[in-house]
């Protein structure tokens, strides 16, 4: 089983150069986070939904993500308007829901959904190692990119080791319960996982030294900027500027 999978596919979004996707996602997220107007936020959600359809995200995993996020939002909707002071907007079972509280919760919900949709459609569809290369080409600090690539590379390996260790525990009839024994056993399991990780990291370092590592990875994976990427850059620039413009003429009231 792998826990580092992306939403693979062959749509036009998948074929786009990852670099402009990273940049567009970041600018979009910042604009939406700054926004305080429903028209901008709703258009943000619409853009997100459009991108999700365009990249043909699988329904079930996406629904799961949206559900997890929005369950928290339901809690916010029940908590914030009923506990914050101010003019009541409406009453439900004679509990007043304050005006400000409803707007705050609604704003948060729209922002979170818009960003989640765009983030998942644009970045969740990039193969993770390509994302590392994109960071490299976007001049992120080299060490940070290396750390990202290494973490990615060994997540599945360590998950596999964890499963192996857990299986040996189960073979010895381990059953979790709320007891010190359980915590100790899990603690030793984690300790063993760390020992294996540390020993493995030394082997990796030794192997890299054998091959003359000097603190530099050579990215041999270069991206090509196609016409479709230019179209994407232009479209997203226009959409994002439109957002900023609407926000500006509506008299931006950042919360």
């Amino acid at each position: 089983m792998s826990c580092t999978t992306h939403f693979s596919g062959h749509t036009v979004v998948h074929r786009l150069d990852p670099r402009p996707r990273v940049v567009a996602t970041l600018v979009f997220a910042v604009l939406i986070a700054l926004s305080g107007h429903y028209r901008v936020l709703c258009s943000g959600v619409a853009v997100g939904a459009f991108l999700a359809m365009l990249s043909k995200l699988p329904i079930r995993p996406l629904a799961k993500r949206l559900l997890r996020l929005n369950l928290f939002m339901v809690v916010l909707f029940l908590l914030i308007p009923t506990t914050s002071p101010g003019e009541p907007m409406f009453r439900l079972l004679s509990v007043p829901f304050s005006h400000d509280g409803v707007h705050l919760a609604a704003g948060i919900t729209l922002k979170a959904n818009a960003i989640l949709l765009v983030f998942t459609s644009l970045l969740g569809t990039v193969e993770l190692s390509s994302l590392g290369h994109a960071f490299h080409h976007l001049h992120m600090p080299a060490k940070l990119t290396h750390l990202f690539m290494f973490t990615l590379r060994y997540l599945d390996v360590l998950h596999h080791e964890y499963v192996t260790l857990l299986r040996t525990m189960k073979a010895r009839a381990f059953r979790p319960a709320m007891s010190v024994h359980t915590y100790r056993t899990y603690g030793y399991l984690m300790g063993m996982l760390l020992v294996r990780s540390l020993v493995r990291s030394e082997r990796i370092m030794a192997a890299m030294k054998c091959r003359g590592f000097r603190g530099e990875f050579h990215a041999y994976h270069h991206f090509h900027f196609h016409q479709r990427d230019a179209v994407f850059c232009l479209t997203s620039a226009i959409v994002l500027m439109l957002f900023a413009f609407v926000e500006w003429i509506s008299g931006g009231v950042a919360r």
Binding site: L158, M190, E202
Partner: peptide, 14 residues
């Protein structure tokens, strides 16, 4: 870097 990455991965998995 490998050490930091491996410890981070282990903690992430846990």
């Amino acid at each position: 870097i490998p050490r930091a990455a491996l410890v981070a991965s282990a903690i992430f998995v846990a």
